[in-house]
Amino acid sequence: MAINHIWLRHFGQALVPTVFNFGISGKPPSHPELLDWLSMELMDRNWSMKSVHRLIVTSNAYRMQSSTRDANSSNAKVDPEDRYLWRMNEQRMQGEVVRDSLLSIAGQLDTAMGGLEIEAGKGLESHRRSVYFQHTPDVQVTFLKVFDEANPNECFQRNESIVPHQALALANSKLSLHVARTIERQITKQAGEPAAVDSKFIAEAFDVILNRPPSRAERSESLKFLRQQAELFQDPKKLTLVATGPAGEIKPESDPHLRARENLVHVLLNHTDFVTIR
């Protein structure tokens, strides 16, 4: 049972798919020998979960790539659901990880441990880790809730929905705007302000937010976007402000070019690769 849960959290799918039911009405394991072997390993390692985590994440199975682009097409045909682990599954970050990552990449995550639980209403202002917030059937941090936070009553397996609310949470929340504006200032300080170093800015932003360099196509799209947005801000009279909602603590950059950079960072926070673990 324990191994099945640990496996589920690393691979996004459990060895026994009915995680809440190991009885006769449950589904049989996809890899019975593996389940048995790992269970024995856990016991032999004095029930050290850390040790089993290490065993799993250093395995070949764990280190497979998730892209099916160059995959053998017969695999996709025979096992489209990847029950037999011919590739890694993509997983979406859990809500807590999304929120903590936002703060972390801006260098603002408060990693202090312990203390009283924090009011759910402070979910967007507090920089403490997400685990410390109030989490009851009635009160939850909205930002975490839309990303399928654990059901406070029972949770065997997190749901991994993709709903427009998540898009709005990342696109419109003051947390993500705050983080975007913060990161833009940090990178600009490093890379410099002139448009001539935009490529450097882009590479750095991709690295900080997505942990990888931009592809050639991404770089040219990004450069185009920076020009377009900067042009937009040249003539604010032609623009319409969004009528409602609270204004952010950090004001947007007044320089059109730097504000465009803010936009770029903000978009990368909304990029599918930011919330996806591959």
């Binding site: 709005l168 623009l239 969004v242 609270p246």
Partner: peptide, 21 residues
């Protein structure tokens, strides 16, 4: 929840971001 990005954002700015995304 999160229906609006806040008063200091332009509609056109947001539209450009979604398009680029």
């Amino acid at each position: 929840p999160f229906a609006s990005p806040g008063k200091d954002v332009y509609q056109q700015e947001q539209e450009g971001e979604f398009e680029f995304l």
